[in-house]
Nucleic acid binder design. Structure first.
Lengths: 226, 226, 226, 226
DNA sequence: GATGAATGAGCGTTCATTCAT
DNA sequence: AATGAATGAACGCTCATTCAT
């Protein structure tokens, strides 16, 4: 589906890594297998020791790429939001009408993830599950201020800003565009999770993607007032 | 504000503790100081060793009450939601009109927390910050299924259900009451956090509680359609 | 089989216990359940904590009877050898011929154990398995000298002496009666164990109790020479 | 005495260690000092912590070699029996007569141990004392079946088999060769221990090695009958 | 005499990290 | 650049034991 740009490489803030994992086979293996491993055992139980066993290398080698497991999670999170932005840009290409652009944006942000063949070493479906379960841990954290200061949340903030701009275009008076967008993004993540593990907290309806429908309606109804 | 019921004691599911912390001075101290400590250093860095030093006791003594730090966090989370329910019940007393009841509910769920003098050993303001930053960790977790099966999320689910019922009363056709309520609860938590640490993700406005306003409007606008 | 002496009570050296376990219901329960528990999990993993849970009492209560788990094992071991002596005395009653007495003795010492209904709170079959697997630990131990000095091994030594006397009666010139007897007792224990778990170290023969046969022959052949 | 084979290295089953202790200086030190320490304080009180202090290293470093103290004891036990086999093979070299071979075998198995200069980092005298006091703990144990299944007792069983073969050669009708050999080996160990700590259980005679004499006679007398 | 509560000490293990090659 | 080896520090937990009632 997104094969129109061959050999893309998403730009990741250099401060999360010591050596760019995209620059070597070992680096790519680290990314690929860390997604696999975090998906399997969760971030809390994930250690460089276990990862080194999985990739049949050593902890010392992984340290060459990342200072610690939190940096690695930052890397994955940034990659994910850059990838979302990339999907968004191409998804909105040639759509002029702002309402349509907004709806399409929410569609992209909240719909179930499918594999992207452009990035061989990354399983986007598993990465999405990791982002849902673990990514909040990168900012619900005693290091937020420092991490924010060095720009680790820029990709996420830029994405929110990008869609907020569309909202402002539709209704320049609307007072809470960022609040709305971040509520939708985080909300959609939670609802996907709840629908799998805590269904009493959501409303799953057959033959329809209730989550996407719900958040589209939310955007439309809230923006027009104010 | 809630002083009208003297000596209340919130009921906590017995399976999260070995010995009821509310049954002894040491137990209460464990709760009081764990809130303090998790608030200070975060749940990830929180250990029974550090807590034991803070309460001038030993790890072994804490183990008499809780099997591990996750159980303790479950205890705090359950206490928090039971307390919310309790605040809700009294906040809604004598209000008949369902729209009013819903608005009042959202008010209670999303407004800033104030101290409750009924529970001396619990600092609700700090506990609220903990719930915001850490409570997701109790269900974004490899044990969700097991924990859910034994009823650890009941208090949260019952709270969501309680408010969903009000929504249904207002509009029996509305399809997504639970999704709406859980989006509001989680969303409000996130927005409070963002407003402090990641303001670009929210829209803070002076002289107004934008968060409460935003989520009230959300409920009203979404329910009437459908 | 041994029911001819009603209400016997085997005398145990007082220094292994603080309070005679035979003097109270709790004490008997401690003995009964400790046999059960050591049989199940082995002496190394056996703790007063686990025992207290099994008997639905507390560690502190057990301490009133025994100072530590080693004392308890001593108690069981002493009881076992006193019980063996008791079986021996009655087994040899009215047999005059020393050769016959020796053979009967070895029979009793090496044959498979059966339940003795005189001691309700003791399961002799399980106790025998414990003695086989664990009793060496009471003397292969840094406290041998001290334990020996206070008489903890007297019951075992007296049993060996008793049978050595029979050997001397048969052949006053025989130089190694104690070595022979202790070799037979320990050997028979090991062979029973090997036959169950390490059969390559023994020679199990169908329709015959090879172990008893082997050690009887050993005694006969060795004594007559010298 | 056994210096005729330079640079021998006894083969140890790889599953008892993570990293071959014979492959590094630290590894050899672990073996050397663990023998020293177990000899001093006994296996029950022996911990990796204490060993790490003795070798001025850390527990973590020892874990690189052995998973736990039981594995280390297995290592020592296997080494011991392989060393016995090695002594046996050279001790029997050029002896043709099976009776002579058997007597020599028992001599080697039951005589007091002397140092073997081929293995610098191993004190065979102390190791022998350890084997006497502690080695039974490797099989009188809830893991016997598992340990046996993975071959941990092979060296011992092979040694028993090797001597059983000699017995069969002498008297093909003899029914209990393994029982005899294992009785002799275990018995001799016990008698050495008894002679030091519990003399009433044995018969020590001056100017003679009673233990060796006793077990040689046992073999001769028992085999010829049947 | 029996029990409930509390605790000091230490065990076994893993983690994150560094060093040397 | 990648790896193998080593290690300091801490974690989670249990044990044996004592104290107060």
């Amino acid at each position: 589906m997104l094969s129109f740009i061959p050999n893309v490489k998403l730009q990741i803030n250099e401060i999360v890594y010591n050596k760019d994992p995209d620059s070597s086979e070992l680096g790519k293996k680290i990314i690929k297998e860390s997604i696999e491993l975090i998906y399997e055992i969760g971030f809390e139980d994930f250690t460089f020791k276990k990862l080194s066993l999985k990739i049949k290398s050593t902890e010392a080698s992984i340290y060459r790429y990342f200072d610690n497991k939190h940096s690695l999670l930052h890397y994955l999170t940034i990659w994910y939001w850059r990838w979302m932005e990339y999907k968004l840009i191409f998804g909105l290409a040639n759509i002029q009408n702002p309402e349509e652009r907004l709806i399409k944006s929410i569609q992209i942000l909240t719909e179930p993830i499918t594999e992207d063949s452009n990035f061989h070493h990354i399983n986007e479906i598993k990465l999405n599950k990791i982002i849902i379960s673990e990514s909040a841990k990168v900012y619900l954290n005693k290091n937020v201020k420092k991490d924010n200061a060095v720009g680790l949340f820029l990709p996420y903030k830029e994405l929110v800003e990008r869609i907020s701009q569309i909202i402002i275009e539709i209704n320049p008076q609307y007072k809470y565009p960022h609040m709305l967008v971040s509520t939708i993004i985080e909300g959609a993540h939670y609802q996907r999770y709840f629908s799998e593990y805590l269904p009493k907290l959501t409303d799953v309806v057959k033959n329809e993607d209730a989550i996407t429908t719900f958040y589209k309606k939310m955007a439309i109804e809230l923006i027009k007032k104010d």
